[in-house]
């Protein structure tokens, strides 16, 4: 079953949840062949049980938090996330296409730096709530570049060298 996973981390990002659950967004998702929408809503003021729309054939599932989102990310065919560094990196490591949605109510958030850079380097799509629907409509996921894993072994080599450890 082709599914979308939406995550807001520990933030409160009701605009994103409301936008994704709007009839316009749900219709686009349906037209793209997505059958399931899983929402991690965090501190969202909306009642997770009441999210979704009966007009479209997209199954909606929502929860507030989980210890690990690894399983949800693994199952997803597309991830829509807030700009949190942890969420972005974990999604990219699992090789999933990612749309980062900026929360404009959180300005000067240093986490934006990473999301912007990942967008600049072609690893993620990047939008805000008001442009999410058109981003979904026009997205060409295969053009996103894979994100190679980091190389902690280079750090180990560096430390061994400066400390004289063999």
């Amino acid at each position: 079953m082709k599914s979308v996973f939406v995550t807001v981390g520990t933030t409160s990002f009701d605009d994103l949840i409301a936008t994704v659950c709007s009839p316009a967004a749900m219709q686009v998702l349906q037209s793209l062949g997505y059958e399931k929408l899983v929402l991690q809503v965090g501190r969202c003021a909306l009642d997770p049980a009441l999210l979704g729309s009966s007009d479209v054939a997209v199954e909606v599932e929502a929860f507030r938090y989980k210890e690990s989102l690894a399983e949800d990310l693994r199952r997803a065919d597309l991830v829509i996330s807030h700009a949190g560094a942890g969420s972005c990196l974990e999604t990219l490591e699992k090789g999933k296409p990612l749309i980062v949605v900026i929360n404009e109510k959180l300005m000067n958030n240093h986490q934006l730096e990473l999301a912007k850079q990942l967008h600049k380097d072609g690893h993620v799509l990047y939008c805000n709530c008001s442009t999410l629907v058109e981003t979904l409509q026009s997205m060409e996921l295969p053009t996103l570049k894979p994100f190679p894993p980091g190389q902690p072994e280079k750090f180990a080599l560096f430390l061994d060298q400066v400390l004289g450890i063999q």
Partner: peptide, 19 residues
């Protein structure tokens, strides 16, 4: 806290038992 712990543990994962 947070992602920083994950980051530092990744760095440690490649260090030998000399550390």
């Amino acid at each position: 806290t947070g992602g920083h712990t994950t980051e530092i543990l990744r760095l440690l994962s490649c260090l030998s038992e000399s550390y």
